[in-house]
Structure formats: C-alpha cells, structure tokens
C-alpha cells in the first residue's frame, strides 16, 4: 500500500475549482515531483495534504490512516512535514532555536518548562544545521540569513522531527544555480527514511532528483508516471509548449 493516497480530492475557492478530482499515490522512499503551470493547483494540493485547508470532497490516507480532516498538529505527529512556498522561518529567533523548536514539539510540558530539552537535543540540532551548511550561522537570527539559507533552514526544520513524508513547495525558488545544485545534493540522503513530494518550476532540477512525476493542469491530473514516461508524454509537451 502506498504511503500517501489522495483519492478524488476536490477543493473550490468560491466558484474556482482549484482541485478537481485529484488522484495521487506516493510510495514510501520515493521522490515524487509535482509540476504544472502557474495556478494549476500544486500548492493547494500540498496544503490539503498537510492540513492547511480541508478538501471539499475526496479522501487522503497517510500511512494507513484517513487524515482527510485531521488537524495540522495531528498530521505532523503522524509523520507529515511541510515547507511552505513562502518561506516561513521564525525571523526573530536564531537559526539554532528554529531547529530546536522543530525538534522539541513532542516533549512534555514539564521538560519544556525545565528547559532540559535544550541540552538533550543539542547534538541533533547541530547535526541538522551542519547538514544544511548552517552550523556557523547557528546564533544568527533566521531573518538575517540569505534567502537561500532561509530555505535550507526551513527544510532542516521540516526534517528535524524525522517525518515519513516531506512536502516541499518550491524549495529552490529564488536560489542561484549553485544553491539549487547544493539543495539537490542535500536532499539525496533523506531518501533512506523519508519520501518526498516536491513542487518545482525548474524542470531540470526536478528531473534530476525525482523518480516519479505528476503533472497538474487546471486542478486535474494531466499525466502521471516515471520521469522518462513524462518526458515522452505528448499531452504534457502540449501544455508546456503552449503555456509556459
């Protein structure tokens, strides 16, 4: 059974059908790319999976559990993690504290109040920061980091609680080509324990790292398959050559 199953999900904003009967299955351990023109519903789909809003119809199953109407908190606990399209680090806290916060969400009130978590989780925080090349910026405020570093910090936060599935909405938006390349490298090692659903406009980037692609257009699945299959798809080529 797939790790994540989205069945016939629909979401409307007023009269606009942002998602119109979406079906997607994400297998454990795979990197699953979500592509499509602007406004095709990619972010809306990720938000429905993460719980930022509930679909009007259809169902979402994660790790054998129906999470269609679970709260974001419940989904996070179940092993889902999300990085928003708009970077959402906590700008007035240090990079270190940002990661620590992401790590200690399952701690009891008492251990938070007695601050024991700080010492206990130090190793994990530093490992996460090192992995995303932020160790030397640990004490700097997140808001003072460069745009690319903020994206990395947010990925580090999203990965900190060891999710089973990570949802990334345009992680390389606004990055330099070099930063993109590094981002791809940084994501590779998570493959062993975490599946990925990633939205990207940079097709080269996404072809490089993904095993499987789903193409959305106007709220519907236009095509779905391995990277090679999608590359050959005439339907996809039509949409991409006519509109992008």
């Amino acid at each position: 059974m797939a790790l994540l199953e989205v069945r016939n999900v629909g979401k409307s904003f007023g009269t606009l059908r942002a998602l119109d009967g979406i079906d997607i299955a994400v297998q454990a351990g795979t990197f699953h790319g979500l592509i499509g023109p602007n406004g095709s519903g990619k972010s809306t789909l990720l938000k429905a999976i993460a719980g930022a809003h509930f679909p009007n119809s259809g169902s979402i199953t994660f790790d054998g559990r129906d999470i269609t109407t679970a709260t974001p908190y419940e989904r996070a606990r179940a092993g889902l993690s999300l990085k928003f399209q708009i970077t959402a680090v906590l700008p007035e806290l240090s990079a270190y504290d940002n990661v620590l916060l992401a790590l200690q969400s399952d701690q009891s009130l008492w251990s938070l109040l007695s601050s024991r978590t700080r010492r206990r989780l130090n190793g994990e925080v530093m490992t996460a920061l090192e992995r995303f090349r932020l160790a030397d910026r640990a004490d700097d405020l997140a808001g003072e980091l460069s745009h690319g570093q903020q994206q990395w910090l947010e990925i580090a936060m999203a990965l900190a609680p060891r999710p089973k599935l990570l949802l990334l909405d345009e992680p390389t938006g606004g990055m330099s080509p070099e930063e993109r390349r590094v981002t791809g490298e940084l994501l590779q090692p998570i493959r062993s324990h975490c599946a990925l659903v990633i939205v990207e406009h940079d097709l080269d980037f996404i072809k490089d790292i993904c095993d499987h692609l789903t193409v959305l257009d106007q709220g519907k699945v236009l095509d779905d398959g391995t990277v090679a299959e999608i590359e050959r798809s005439t339907r996809v080529q039509e949409v991409y050559t006519s509109r992008v």
Partner: peptide
C-alpha cells in the same frame, strides 16, 4: 526564558508554522 517560552515566542512570530511542526 524556558523552552516553553521559546515555543511561545515561535507562536507569536508564526502560529501556523508551529502548528505544522507539531505543536
């Protein structure tokens, strides 16, 4: 000044973000 205070400080800055990391 405790780690609970840190959680509250995070909430003040971005409540949604904190919900999505599991608070």
């Amino acid at each position: 000044r405790s780690q609970l205070g840190l959680v509250l400080a995070g909430m003040r800055q971005n409540e949604e973000r904190l919900a999505f990391v599991g608070y």
